[in-house]
Design a protein around this nucleic acid. Structure first.
Lengths: 184, 184
DNA sequence: ACACTTGTGTCCAATTCTTTGACACTTGTA
DNA sequence: TACAAGTGTCAAAGAATTGGACACAAGTGT
């Protein structure tokens, strides 16, 4: 039971019950809401490791707009908590938009229990990964340098550091040289 | 015409022609391939600003596996070039997997010309965004510190810096905690 | 062919950051 | 209560960053 608390938001009580049963063996605590209104408050109180959010709450509306709105709101306020969306109205455009809006994953109803567990676990694992500062830096440096076609002066400018510093950073980790795009 | 070269990969000549016409006004140069085999070579030669990749190439197979494979291969070798996938067999699971595998976007056939152009433009714009090193660093520091519930010793450890250094970094920029990105 | 611009590789000295180690002080907990 | 762990703070040694400078290589336009 190393996966902490999960917050499940769905307006259908039957779904909440089913999800609760499904996730009971994996999470220490399962908090449910039947409407997203109290989501932000509940998150502040419970500090969940992940959120499972339904996309449609208004009866007769299945555009997913409401879920999308809540996704954005929650993600803006808690960008480090992975949000998995779930919907009965599978729609490629909606899924793509959701992922680009920060959703960690997108699941369709009816769901496969094992898959749902795996998806939530993965999302939490991924969100928990932390990168040393050096690595983040050198990856970013390589990327920007690449985008500048190796122009160190401009890259240094864009990175907000001096040319010499960039020069030193680059020659400090020569591994990155191999990853430059081949050209000329 | 500031959007450079785009590489379009599709086994259907009619599609290639249609896409070419659609994108002609937006890109300086449109390179087409009717099979992904030569993708990596062509990318090295043309250095495209974006890639539009079909998902199905083997006749009778529409699982999208092949496109997914090429997406991974290209993305691994050229992580900075945005890849937009396009497929006639819209499938939420496939789309989600593609995005999680590094695709910049996912479009379904038949496509809307304006949307296709917008998607490619957006992908290129997004890929072109560069962040100063300081900002990247302080954002990451916040995030890790957050994940450690404010425990600076542990956060410093995970970040690979000393406790005092983290302490200084934190008190150097106390405003970032409120996510106030607007600043002039 | 000739200036002109832009970028590279290299060096230096001044400044700033980072690290190591230490100390008193608060807290949660066995 | 006493221990372990973390905080805020300081100082001094060591490392990194900076701005400036210089000669040199390309690429530009005239």
């Amino acid at each position: 039971m190393k996966y902490g608390t999960v917050l499940v938001i769905d307006d259908n009580p039957a779904i909440l019950t089913a999800v609760k049963i499904c996730l009971a063996g994996t999470f220490e605590r399962i908090v449910t809401l039947n409407s997203p209104e109290k989501a932000l408050v509940t998150i502040a109180q419970e500090n969940p490791a992940a959120i499972l959010l339904d996309m449609n709450f208004s009866l007769g509306v299945n555009s997913g707009q409401e879920g999308m709105m809540w996704l954005s709101a929650i993600h803006r306020k808690y960008p480090d908590i992975p949000i998995v969306l779930i919907t009965a109205y599978a729609d490629v455009k909606l899924a793509v938009r959701a992922l680009k809006n920060g959703a960690a994953d997108f699941v369709t109803k009816p769901w496969d229990n094992d898959e749902l567990i795996r998806v939530l676990k993965d999302a939490i694992d991924k969100a928990g990964e932390i990168v040393p500062l050096d690595q983040l830096e050198s990856e970013h440096v390589r990327k920007v340098l690449n985008k500048c076609d190796g122009n160190m002066k401009r890259a240094a400018d864009l990175l907000g550091i001096s040319r010499q510093t960039l020069y030193n950073k680059v020659k400090a980790s020569p591994l990155t040289a191999n990853q430059l795009t081949i050209n000329n």
